[in-house]
């Protein structure tokens, strides 16, 4: 699995020097996060329009702009490795729709944190790379640059934001049986070996 990183430079030797304090880094991350989120909110006021959502089912947890971010992030995070129409896309599987329903089950603090991650990705992260457009208006290559920068950020808060979005996307993608042939995974056994008979606990 982990040879995936073959497209990125790998190394065998150790990182140079001792790591910095993770607690200090976390505090720095929080401070930085507060600043960029405030900036993000300001930027969002200026360029926060133009999101339209056309769906059969109404959204249950995400705002229209959040859904747009999720749709674009899912297309890049779950991008196929070959031009093969048999590989379902994130759009085919409605990954964003799954995330909308999944997020509805989260606690309010978790939803708030996730919304901030979406805001950062959409409004602030592109600016940190010198890109003027918001994430959903970038080319696919530039969206990949933004996501890569988040994943490898020295700030754990931003890495965590990426990890959270990525986990949701892959949950929406690999939950679908249409993706299992990619892995050679044959899915849950309960369809083949039914639940044990007997009395349920009281």
């Amino acid at each position: 699995m982990y040879s995936a990183l073959c497209d990125r430079k790998s190394r065998v030797t150790s990182a140079s020097g001792p790591p910095s304090s993770s607690r200090r880094a976390a505090l720095q991350s929080l401070a930085f996060g507060a600043i960029v989120l405030a900036a993000g909110g300001t930027v969002a006021l200026v360029r926060g329009r133009g999101y339209t959502v056309t769906r059969k089912r109404p959204l249950v947890s995400l705002a229209p702009w959040e859904l747009a971010v999720v749709v674009h992030a899912a297309r890049r995070i779950a991008a196929p490795d070959r031009p093969d129409r048999s590989i379902p896309s994130a759009d085919d599987l409605d990954v964003a729709g799954f995330i909308d329903s999944y997020v509805a089950r989260m606690s309010r603090p978790m939803r708030r944190d996730l919304s901030r991650a979406f805001l950062y990705l959409e409004q602030v992260a592109p600016i940190t790379l010198g890109l003027r457009d918001r994430f959903t208006d970038l080319s696919a290559d530039d969206q990949d640059r933004v996501l890569l920068a988040l994943e490898s950020s020295p700030l754990m808060l931003l890495r965590g934001a990426f990890a959270g979005i990525k986990s949701l996307v892959f949950m929406g993608y690999y939950r679908d049986p249409r993706t299992w042939s990619i892995l050679g995974y044959d899915g849950p056994w309960v369809a083949k070996v039914p639940h044990a008979p007997g009395d349920a606990p009281p």
Binding site: M1, A4, L5, D7, A78, R82, G184, Y185
Partner: peptide, 14 residues
């Protein structure tokens, strides 16, 4: 780690 096409290539080794 990673995402996109390299990630899917890696998942094929599952």
């Amino acid at each position: 780690p990673g995402f996109g096409a390299p990630h899917m290539r890696a998942m094929r080794d599952y």
